[in-house]
Write a protein that binds this DNA or RNA. Sequence first.
DNA 1: CAAATAGTGTCTATAAGACATTATTGG
DNA 2: CCAATAATGTCTTATAGACACTATTTG
Lengths: 229, 229
Amino acid sequence: MPQKPIICTIDVVLLCLQGSALHVALLKRDKPPFEGGYALPGGFIHPEEDADTLDAAARMLNEKTGIASPYLEQLCTFSGAARDPRGWSISIVYYALVPAELIKPDRAPGLQLQPVDQLRTLPFDHKEIVLAAVERVRSKSSYSSLPVYLCGEQFTLPRLQAVYEAILGEPINKVSFRRKMDELDMLEPVEGALEAGRANRPAQLYRLKNQYRNRLSLSGRAMTANSDH
Amino acid sequence: MPQKPIICTIDVVLLCLQGSALHVALLKRDKPPFEGGYALPGGFIHPEEDADTLDAAARMLNEKTGIASPYLEQLCTFSGAARDPRGWSISIVYYALVPAELIKPDRAPGLQLQPVDQLRTLPFDHKEIVLAAVERVRSKSSYSSLPVYLCGEQFTLPRLQAVYEAILGEPINKVSFRRKMDELDMLEPVEGALEAGRANRPAQLYRLKNQYRNRLSLSGRAMTANSDH
DNA sequence: CAAATAGTGTCTATAAGACATTATTGG
DNA sequence: CCAATAATGTCTTATAGACACTATTTG
């Protein structure tokens, strides 16, 4: 009955922190439509290869950026007649968070990091998609351990607090923050490891407890009284 | 390249409250696979007719159950090689909440309401889908006005509190509940309308403020300290 | 007026935030 | 010792919950 089949793709919003600004990874497109433009890494499902769309997203991310992200979650599906000039399409979108050091531009030709808060227009509805992913990350960060995925293996509490503040966009009370980290019960100190080097008391290094390597730790109460869930 | 195209469908989880138990609407399937089994209302996208998948979900819900739900939101997309015997498939799932009175079995042949907390195995991965929808509803209910969609046009505060308690599965402090409703600022009293009839002080009837007819009101803090977001 | 439930006032407990103090480093 | 920042103790403020009291109806 339908003349044209529905175009069915996967896109991945790969986020990292540079300085205190959240950035998204964009790739130069090497075929039409929007050839030469920068867009989200994405592509078609390979039914023979991918068990499901999460699988497909992980494969795509790895193929296009060389990254195997420990955190990769479905955002939602964007769809409709208007979003792709080729026809009626859907895109099942996943998002990933990684430390910026993990993104090696030489490993991925045509890769570019753009700050999400001053994004130019992107091909398809990719700007809208990125903004939806950022909103999700900001919202989840206020009651979960999500931002630790933006840090490396080991990090200090002041560093982690700075990461939370960068995402939430507002300062957090130091005592409350440490109480909350304690309550989330996801961190363990790296015995004897301190971050020295500067002219002050060195900070204790922490790492994620094993059980939270691939799972979020959740808190009943939000970090700050922000109203966007 | 791909021998078989990906099977691309929409499913809708329609929820309502009967007594104090959340129920899901299931339809008797009139074609294979799983012919004769009870499954979620769903079907194929009509690219000529539907502007996007939300549109398709609304159409499908209306065609199959006769209901035009004011609240219809995307849950997420289920996918993979294993979930449909016909082949590699995706299902973009939406969920809706309506007052039970709105579901008229005579209007929809083969429709059945099942309590979500004692669900038997369903065709495809529909049981998993229902459980995911219920978890989303429970989680969102703890910090939003979502449960009002399970009430009719007008309702009393004790009734609304009972609806919240039915969804969250635990009693709520009356004073806290009323403070929260006040804070959400989504209700207005229906002037002069009281729910009389019983041998006690009659309760004030309320309705949703106009601006929240099709939008949730959100609170920064959760209703109860439940840890599943 | 007794029973029943609506609606409100107020005290207590808990959690968040402000602020100050101590700790530990390099120079 | 001074500057800088980590880490923690403690007081204040805000929010949530317990409980009791008043209000309004039917029979």
